[in-house]
Simulated assay, not measured.
Amino acid sequence: MKFPIASLALAGLVSVAAATEAAAWTRSTTVTTARGTYSGSASAGCAGGVCSRSATVTGPYGNSVSRSGSVARTGYPSYMYSRTTTGPYGRSVTRSGSVVVYR
């Protein structure tokens, strides 16, 4: 269950980063499984060359996992990114770096 949520969040961040000046959006959903009901929400937008996204998933026992991140263009063809993931017990992990895109 951890990998699909993380993969979706990363894919969403990358797709938001690909947009130049996209309109902001917010989404939310609820899914019921054999293990209980999960609810999730996400929002994203771009402004001034920086695209950001945040998402939160809450499980059936009230524990939440959230991820927020941003991508900024630092000059063609390079970008800087940062993301923070916070687990259900408040521990967080931050990753950041830069990417150069070659065609």
Rank of each mutant, 00 (worst) to 15 (best):
A55D: 13
T86K: 04
G45E: 00
R27Q: 11
K2F: 15
G90F: 11
F3K: 07
V65L: 09
R73P: 00
G69N: 11
S64F: 04
V99L: 13
S96R: 15
G90S: 06
S92F: 03
T56K: 13
S68H: 12
G40H: 01
Y61D: 02
S98C: 11
V99P: 04
A11V: 12
S39V: 09
A23W: 07
S64E: 02
V16G: 09
Y76S: 11
Y61I: 01
T33L: 02
T37Q: 01
R91W: 04
T84V: 06
S92W: 05
A19P: 02
V100L: 02
S52R: 13
A23L: 07
A22P: 05
T84K: 11
V93C: 12
R53G: 09
T74Q: 13
S41A: 15
P4A: 14
L10R: 01
V71S: 03
V14L: 11
T86E: 15
R91I: 03
V100Q: 04
S52N: 13
V57W: 02
Y102S: 00
A47D: 08
S82V: 03
G36S: 01
G97I: 07
R35G: 03
C46R: 05
S66N: 08
S41H: 06
A72L: 05
V50A: 10
A9G: 06
S68M: 11
G75V: 08
V16T: 15
Y81Q: 06
S39H: 01
S92C: 03
S78K: 15
A17Y: 12
E21R: 06
T37G: 00
A6K: 02
Y89I: 02
G62I: 03
V101P: 01
G49S: 10
S98V: 05
A24D: 10
S98A: 13
G90W: 07
S64C: 10
